[in-house]
Write a protein that binds this DNA or RNA. Structure first.
Length: 826
RNA sequence: GCCCGAGUGGCGGAAUUGGCAGACGCACAGGACUUAAAAUCCUGCGAGACUUAAAUCUCGUGCCGGUUCGACCCCGGCCUCGGGCACCA
């Protein structure tokens, strides 16, 4: 036995093994076609400088999975890196006068060493940082691929502007009308910006949610709602004055005969022509101005009163040639559908309220079957099903059928037809910031927009920069960067100075990990197709829409470009819950932050990991408890003492047959094997690490009891202790490794095969069954295992309690479940 | 408003297929060891009734009802909390 110390000195042990694992390259992996691969990935962090408990949880979960899969014979890819571009670096630079690159890189160094102190099985040789040129070169290259395939385009549009961050935001980054980062109310600005055409993939992003059964239903529902597919029809009205077509989108074409007005969004370009030179012109302009001054929060709130104004113009309904007035109103969104809406007050809540307010006519065109609607009596819109009336040739058919028939008819007469609309908008990727990947585009006076040739990549970020957020990219003020020559004609040209949204960088990092050092390609096809998909992805649910949807989009696009074979990046997704303290999220402002560094210093990484895995199942929120940590620390010490107390004995266990075991010996062996089964199932099938750990604790308790015995089967104890150490390995890797070594074993515990349980050892000779009378537990009795129903009933009926219960009564029914219970109904 | 989740002892949680509710841990209490304390080891620990005690009984998984021999689990209706979306035509 190698120096087995009496006390568990975690600090010594953890340092020792971390160094050893690193020197030996224990966690380095390469492609190996003889082994089945497994790609285990945790969301890479933003290098804020310090690890927080959320990271500890995320990476502890991932490490259990990675180690478990390795021990089960898989070739496991388990990489880590840094989502290293982004605003905080610029803010820190302004505040502390440190260049963003320097600040970020030193944060990375600090966080890397914190991560390494956790002893996670990363292949550090595959580390990537999105802010380094050898990475963002390929982000730029991928931008060009999207550009050449028509998926990256520039357009002027009303975009979300965060005045505090001084940059634009993607639609997804606006939360309740505020900036997702800082909460500031966003404004609308008309700017020329770059977009990725994610809407081209709207339908596939929706459909292929079915191809990822390993994702939580909740996340898929969130994505589904975000994509917001809506089936309906386009109906083309015609402006009476200009004869211009005015299409609307509606999900209720069956109510088209009930249209009594038309509403345009204030931004709708047709408004100007309609009111030009009329008596309504000034009033309408004033109204539009007023609406546009409202913040997005106010404007999109359901609380906000619906307001509108008549334009003085009319449109013709293509189905009944009726002339209806055109209004402009604050509740119509220019970005959705066609920016114009038909008003059917009788059958739409919102239209009803609007019509009542402005005294617009209400025409009933859907009649419920068992009552008769009367306009005068209506207090609400009727939005349920019914039969179509006042609808010309469609009278008498059900409105459900009408939806289809009217749409088809519209197509026939050339005034629209069936349409599908999505809520999803294209992804705005331009950011007016310095610390991001430059967009590889050049503007030439002669040639216009010119993509940078691939050989010229990367377009490097200049590193010596003085800047303040001004609302335009700081790169605008760096002449060396700004001025260039046109790659096409050689003339003077100007670089694009906006940088890319950091979500672009994180939309493909999992591909780079498969081939991180490649300086010829973003990733080699062989590597990427060997490792992809990610088998298990683990991270916070806050990325349910943004990151996870963008990454899916990238994968599909890259697959269409022939760069990858798969169309979904993440086969299985685990969304872990938050780490709470005193019932709320840890935050500096609440002063309830527990620092991982301090916990690791005080108890060691193994205890920290064990606690965070034990305190709750991974998907649920976890309440931090200092006493709970203490408990896990005690448990490891308890294991240590157990092994120590057997000491030399385990070296010479003697040979005792396992076939002849009886009594407590047999029970101990059964405990060992049921524990293997429980731990294996809990990790593999349910990711319930909390119950896996409690099973291990029960094994330890069992061993303590067995130790009280006078006569012990030491070979059995050896099996139990070895199993215990191996089962602990994924949870407390340093601890297990040390005990493995000091119990006289060669090689790393982490390279062992995961223990298999012996089915036969699981079988108990005796089982306790329950006697119920009328479904209530009345007694418990031990019987031999595997008794038949009849035998079980016989035993049960012979029991005193049963006799007493049936005395003088008729037995109505006896239900017996072998090895479980007998229920006597009287 | 709509769409998801969740609700179990003093606390975190367990009960995997409808079959012993409360595994495991924390906290607490008692005992052993110790001059003493800490640490450790052992025992107890949902509420209530009765009892010297053992035992026994009743109630108990947010609330109300249902299905079933049997419900934390399935069904219907509510309440509370958390999350997502929110004038999407």
């Amino acid at each position: 036995m190698k120096r087995l110390k009496e006390r568990y000195c975690f600090d010594e042990i953890e340092k020792k093994w971390q160094d050893k694992w690193a020197t030996e390259g224990l966690y380095r992996v390469k492609e190996d076609l003889d082994k089945e691969k497994y790609y285990c990935l945790e969301m890479f962090p933003y290098p804020s400088g310090n690890l927080h408990m959320g990271h500890v949880r995320n990476y502890s979960i991932g490490d259990v999975v990675a180690r478990f899969k390795t021990m089960n014979g898989f070739n496991v890819l388990h990489p880590m890196g840094w989502d290293a571009f982004g605003l905080p670096a610029e803010n820190a630079a302004i505040k502390n006068k440190i260049p963003p690159a320097e600040w970020t890189l030193s944060n990375i160094d600090n966080m890397r060493s914190q991560l390494q102190s956790m002893g996670i099985s990363y292949d550090w040789e595959r580390e990537v940082a999105t802010c380094l040129p050898d990475y963002y070169k390929w982000t730029q290259w991928l931008f060009l691929q999207l550009y050449h395939n028509g998926l990256a385009y520039k357009k002027k549009s009303h975009v979300n502007w965060c005045p505090s961050c001084a940059t634009v935001l993607a639609n997804e980054q606006v939360v309740e009308g505020g900036c997702e980062r800082c909460g500031t109310a966003v404004d609308k600005k008309a700017l020329e910006q770059w977009f990725f055409k994610i809407t081209d993939y709207a339908q596939e992003l929706l459909d292929s949610l079915q191809d990822i059964p390993g994702w939580p239903e909740k996340v898929k529902i969130m994505q589904k709602n975000w994509i917001g597919r809506s089936e309906g029809a386009e109906i083309v009205f015609t402006a009476q004055k200009t004869q211009e077509k005015m299409p609307v989108f509606t999900t209720r074409p069956d109510t088209v005969y009930g249209v009594t007005y038309m509403v345009l969004a204030p931004e709708h370009p047709m408004v100007e022509e309609l009111i030009a030179g009329t008596e309504y012109e000034n009033a309408v302009w004033e109204f539009i101005k007023k609406v546009q001054q409202m913040s997005d929060i106010d404007r999109t709130s359901t609380e906000t009163e619906k307001e509108g104004i008549f334009t003085g113009a009319y449109v013709i309904n293509p189905l009944n040639q009726e002339k209806v007035p055109i209004w402009v109103a604050n509740y119509v969104l220019y970005e959705y559908g066609t920016g114009a809406v038909m008003g059917v007050p009788a059958h739409d809540e919102r239209d009803f309220a609007f019509a009542k307010k402005y005294d617009l006519p209400i025409h009933i065109v859907i009649q419920p079957e068992n009552e008769e609607l009367k306009v005068e009596k209506m207090t609400d819109a009727y939005t349920e099903e019914g039969l179509m009336i006042n609808s010309g040739p469609f009278d008498g058919i059900s409105n459900k059928e009408g939806i289809r028939k009217v749409a088809d008819y519209l197509a026939e007469i050339g005034s629209g037809g069936p349409r599908i609309t999505y809520r999803l908008r294209d992804w705005l990727i331009s950011r007016q910031r310095y610390w991001g990947a430059p967009i590889p585009i050049v503007y030439c006076e002669k040639c216009g927009v010119v993509p940078v040739p691939e050989e010229e990549l990367p377009i490097r970020l200049p590193l010596d920069v003085e800047f303040q957020p001004t609302g335009e990219s700081p790169l605008n003020h760096i002449p060396d960067f700004l001025h260039t020559t046109c790659p096409r004609c050689g003339g003077a040209a100007r670089r694009e100075t906006d940088t890319m949204d950091t979500f672009v960088c994180s939309s493909w990092y999992f591909l780079r990990y498969t081939d991180p050092k490649n300086d010829k390609e973003a990733f080699g096809k062989g590597s990427v197709n060997y490792w992809m998909n990610v088998d298990q992805y683990i991270g916070g649910v806050e990325h349910a829409i943004l990151h996870l949807m963008y990454a899916r989009f990238f994968m599909k696009a890259l697959s269409d470009f022939g760069l990858v074979d798969k169309r979904e990046p993440f086969q299985n997704l685990l969304t872990q819950g938050m780490v709470l303290k005193d019932g709320t999220k840890m935050s500096k402002s609440k002063g309830n932050v527990v620092s991982p560094e301090e916990i690791i210093k005080k108890y060691g990484a193994d205890t920290a990991r064990l606690f965070i895995l034990f305190a709750a199942p991974p998907e649920r929120d976890l309440e931090w408890s200092d006493q709970g940590v203490e408990g896990c620390y005690r448990f490891l010490n308890r294991v240590w003492r157990l092994v120590y107390s057997y000491g030399e004995e385990l070296k010479n266990p003697g040979q005792e047959g396992k076939e002849t075991l009886a009594g407590e010996d047999k029970e101990l062996r059964r405990l060992v094997h049921t524990t293997i089964k429980r731990v294996t199932d809990d990790i593999e099938q349910r990711f319930n690490f909390n119950t896996a750990i409690s099973a291990i604790m029960e094994l330890v308790n069992g061993l303590y009891h067995y130790r009280e015995k006078e006569e012990q089967n030491i070979s059995l104890v050896k099996e139990a202790v070895e199993t215990l150490i191996v089962l602990l390995a994924p949870f407390a890797p340093h601890f297990a490794e040390e005990l493995w070594e000091v119990t006289d074993h060669q090689g790393s515990v982490h390279c062992l095969s995961w223990p298999q349980y012996d089915e036969e050892a699981l079988v108990a000779d005796e089982v306790e069954i329950v006697l119920q009378i009328n479904g209530k537990v009345r007694d418990r009795v031990k019987v031999p295992a595997n008794l038949s129903r009849q035998e079980l009933e016989k035993v049960a009926l012979s029991l005193e309690k049963a006799q007493a219960a049936v005395a003088g009564k008729k037995i109505k029914k006896v239900i017996s479940v072998p090895d479980k219970l007998v229920n006597i109904v009287v």
